[in-house]
């Protein structure tokens, strides 16, 4: 094959991207588990560990630019590398949300929790699952799968609304809950943004395969009363 070198280097690059995806995926649930268990030491370790994620993201970016400069890809190859750059950025941002949730765990510390965490861990698990599947749709170049994953963002949005409403009841019943409730709202907000980033990754999958740049997070799609599962 005339493009053996390119194919080989692209495969190496994509492996690095999937490795990064794996680490970031784990961080989503881990940060919320840390919060649930009030494990401040683990939270601090996760915060420090984010530097490694940033390093990997910059390495992927540098390797992608070298590959573009040296191999001068066109068409689908060029779109793939553009997608790698974008996905690496999205992954790094998702990791920042996990870091944000770990910071919340540090802030809330070990004092008695406002409420047992049920929906926030559920949100984290759904977000993590969406990310895992989005990366799978990328490796499979599966547009249909990418679209289906993006549609699941409605569930996350609905969970976020539900958590918000619930936390507001705690605030209304006792205004002293404001600080803790707002921290948990931030946590849910970070998870909601995580899912939005996953939708961006799905959009890149569609772009890589078809060349079409389309928005997959049309809020109107969520108006049919999708309920969280």
């Amino acid at each position: 094959m005339a493009r053996d070198t390119f194919e080989k280097e692209l495969a190496t690059l994509e492996n690095s991207l999937l490795d990064l995806g794996n680490i970031v995926d784990l961080s989503i649930v881990e940060a919320v588990e840390i919060l649930r268990k009030q494990d401040v030491a683990a939270a601090k370790r996760l915060i420090i560990g984010d530097a490694e994620i940033n390093r990997r993201r910059f390495a992927i970016e540098a390797d992608t630019l070298v590959l573009i400069a040296r191999q001068q890809p066109m068409a689908r190859d060029l779109r793939t590398l553009a997608a790698v750059l974008e996905i690496a950025t999205e992954l790094e941002r998702i990791a920042d949300y996990s870091k944000g949730n770990a910071r919340i765990a540090v802030k809330l510390g070990t004092k008695p929790p406002l409420k047992p965490l049920v929906d926030i861990p559920r949100m984290a698990r759904r977000g993590s699952e969406m990310l895992r599947n989005a990366l799978m749709s990328y490796t499979r170049r599966d547009v249909q799968m990418a679209r289906a994953i993006a549609a699941q963002d409605c569930e996350i949005d609905a969970l976020y609304d539900q958590i918000y409403r619930e936390l507001m009841t705690y605030v209304i019943s006792d205004p002293r809950n404001i600080e803790d409730a707002s921290q948990l709202m931030w946590c849910a907000h970070n998870l909601e943004r995580t899912a939005d980033r996953v939708v961006n990754i799905c959009e890149r999958v569609v772009f890589t395969v078809t060349g079409d740049m389309i928005e997959l997070d049309d809020p109107d799609d969520c108006l049919d009363g999708d309920e969280p599962t």
Binding site: M74, A75, L78, R79
Partner: peptide, 17 residues
């Protein structure tokens, strides 16, 4: 043509395949 060609053979040619 260079970002999303319509024909497979065009894509194969410009991507060096």
């Amino acid at each position: 043509v260079f970002t999303r060609p319509a024909q497979r053979i065009t894509e194969d040619y410009i991507t060096g395949r």
